[in-house]
Design a binder for these strands. Structure first.
Lengths: 146, 146
DNA sequence: GCAGACTGCTTGCAAAAGCTAGCAAGCGGG
DNA sequence: CCCGCTTGCTAGCTTTTGCAAGCAGTCTGC
């Protein structure tokens, strides 16, 4: 009933692609998570508080959901909004560890100060990495595939 | 836009999650950051790749920017998108163990490096305390950095 | 065969986002 | 004085989001 599912192969996509390629990634991820959770599209739509057609379009990359909607979907799926934002390409931070996290959320620091601290921290880590030759790259994997 | 909003949102970010407040909050934060960076509205709009009137409306809380726009603004301001999302209420604060604790436990740093980081951190905090004089963000526990 | 309930998808429409063009006010220099 | 350049804000328009309503296909039981 749905033979029309040929992905248009974004490699040769014309200049008309604006919403499609960005939304497709996130939609794929959501659908995958939904299937993993074994719930139907309508169920998730109800859980997330969005309409079922809209969720369908999001999953197929026809619509680009706002951050609010994204957050509600994340809640419905019981996954972190962060993971979803990373998938959506609106958060490119792969997290750097407890220190980085702690600095980022510290409300006692200004953004400039955070940046300085993070820079110093990063330079220390690089410094040590040189010492240990090429052993670096701590936990980079995300994706909570329960 | 969202008259039917039965989701409780667990109140982790704030007691009130009103869209209007949300926009005003984030706008205020952006304007504050922009003034701190000493750049004009039009300059930031160019840096962020958005139109200047739209940025003006965002700062005054008349429009609710999408996550993409937020990210571009964050980039233009050289601040983390995460902080902006938290301000916008679309990202819960990812737990915040004290910075000091995280640094102390970090095995990637030497003791000397830890000391430097802690010193810088504490100096920042003192700086802010003097600057703002008794007005600070909520939930500040006493964390000494010796 | 045919209700009934499930799956997901398509269609039109209201509302909001987001941009282009243009406005009044402030400031320095000729 | 007036010119040019900047500051931020307003008006009107196009594009997109997001939803209500409705459609086709698949099982299950009668």
């Amino acid at each position: 009933m749905d033979p029309v599912h040929e992905a248009d192969t974004s490699g040769a996509t014309g200049p008309i692609d604006k919403v499609a390629d960005l939304g497709r990634d996130i939609g794929d991820y959501i659908r995958q998570q939904r299937n993993t959770a074994k719930i139907s599209l309508r169920q998730l739509s109800k859980l997330a508080g969005v309409s079922n057609p809209y969720l369908s379009q999001i999953e197929r990359g026809l619509r680009k959901p706002s951050a609010e909607i994204l957050q509600q979907i994340a809640k419905g799926l019981r996954i972190s909004a962060e993971a979803l934002y990373v998938q959506a390409g609106i958060l490119d931070e792969p997290i750097g560890g407890p220190v980085v996290d702690a600095i980022r959320v510290d409300s006692a620091l200004s953004e400039r100060q955070k940046q300085i601290l993070l820079d110093v921290y990063e330079s220390f880590r690089r410094e040590n990495a040189e010492d240990r030759t090429t052993s670096d790259a701590p936990g980079q994997s995300d994706m909570e595939a329960q």
